[in-house]
Write a protein that binds this DNA or RNA. Structure first.
Lengths: 205, 205
DNA sequence: TGGAAAACATGACGAACAGCATGTAAGTTC
DNA sequence: GAACTTACATGCTGTTCGTCATGTTTTCCA
């Protein structure tokens, strides 16, 4: 825990700000977007409503900031493990595993809450889109160099297919679908991906 | 429009009930779960709050009923077109198209709203799970006979992979992702599925 | 060291919500 | 056709929400 004595203004500001954003994410994960109130966030962050008022003019702005905070975290989490992937078929399988763990974790759960909420909230939507696109492209960037000799467009296809499949599986997990089936599906998809990878690498179109 | 004169009690009941459930779905699609209030539903259904009180003891019960109403509709929508699918490779591609249109429509949008909300709402969750599982199995049932000579377990894999991929893509569509990319991904997946289908049909493991 | 400014706390206000209690109209039963 | 039941409407209540106006503490700077 960071000490509370003799903090500079910038430190104080940053500290409560991240506390608020982290608390917001916690709320999204624990109680969902619909029940995420400013009061609840404040309670979890250990600050008053006046604080959030001082940092963010409206609740929507808090959410928008939370989106960026969230994707930044997710990005860091993915980047750490994606960097050191082996190349080739086993690398593809490992990358899929990483994408799955990344998109099925608590961070992605919070993102999903915000996504669904953003569908009917133009303001939130405007905040999410650029950040999410940036995350996708950055991740793709790191993933592509795993599939070395694969044609870039096919590697990109594989990536986006995996991301979307993973998100669908994450949704299934949220509702309490059978974990065994998800595991099987993921294993099957890895087999397919490796197969495709080899096909495309040995006999490109 | 059904006449309002001389309705039997059962007719009245059924009529306002479906009006309420349809209005609930409309609300979910238009404003999202978070902003779906009983008042809004009543306004759209053209009834009073007392009516919903009479039919459903609590808001959660309304939502639960809406889930069933929703999946029943979705089921009917899918069943109508799945019944007359050709068998073989072209049938697989057609089936994937159908699953996509089914899971990317407004009905599925409403389902997603409820799904995500249900994650943090045990009551709603308990209502959704059985209905959703039934929908999945019924759809699988209808799909399997498309892939005639394919081993059942592999057909099931293909089905669930498609469903989860489709749901991920639907989520992407909700946020306003690139429609072109979605089309490409779906086409690619169809190619892959047909390829796998042929592989498994000609040289089963 | 004192005052300015930033960071944060407290309390209050109007709006919207879900649930309920009560009233009214339409259909049923005999 | 009159008692009865079901279906629905209206208005109220307590609560919770987001926002704001105002007070208090902490840091900064000269």
């Amino acid at each position: 825990m960071t000490s509370t004595a003799h903090r500079t203004q910038a430190q104080r500001r940053e500290q409560t700000r991240t506390a608020l954003l982290d608390a917001t994410i916690d709320c999204l994960v624990d109680v969902g977007y619909a029940r995420t109130s400013v009061q609840e966030i404040c309670a979890r962050a250990g600050v008053s409503k006046g604080a959030v008022q001082h940092h963010f003019t409206a609740k929507a702005e808090l959410m928008a900031a939370a989106v960026e905070h969230l994707t930044t975290k997710l990005r860091g989490q993915l980047a750490a493990s994606l960097d050191e992937l082996p190349s080739g078929g086993t690398g593809v399988a490992a990358a899929i595993d990483l994408l799955w763990t990344g998109y099925s974790g608590t961070l992605s759960t919070a993102v999903t809450e915000l996504w669904v909420a953003a569908r009917t909230d133009p303001e939130l939507r405007a905040a999410i889109r650029p950040v999410d696109r940036a995350l996708g492209r950055a991740t793709l960037e790191q993933v592509t160099h795993v599939a070395g000799e694969l044609p870039p467009e096919r590697a990109e296809m594989l990536f986006w297919l995996t991301v979307n499949l993973t998100r669908g599986l994450a949704l299934d997990a949220e509702l309490g679908g059978d974990p065994n089936r998800r595991r099987q599906l993921l294993e099957e998809w890895k087999r397919i991906a490796v197969l495709l990878y080899q096909d495309a690498a040995t006999a490109p179109s």
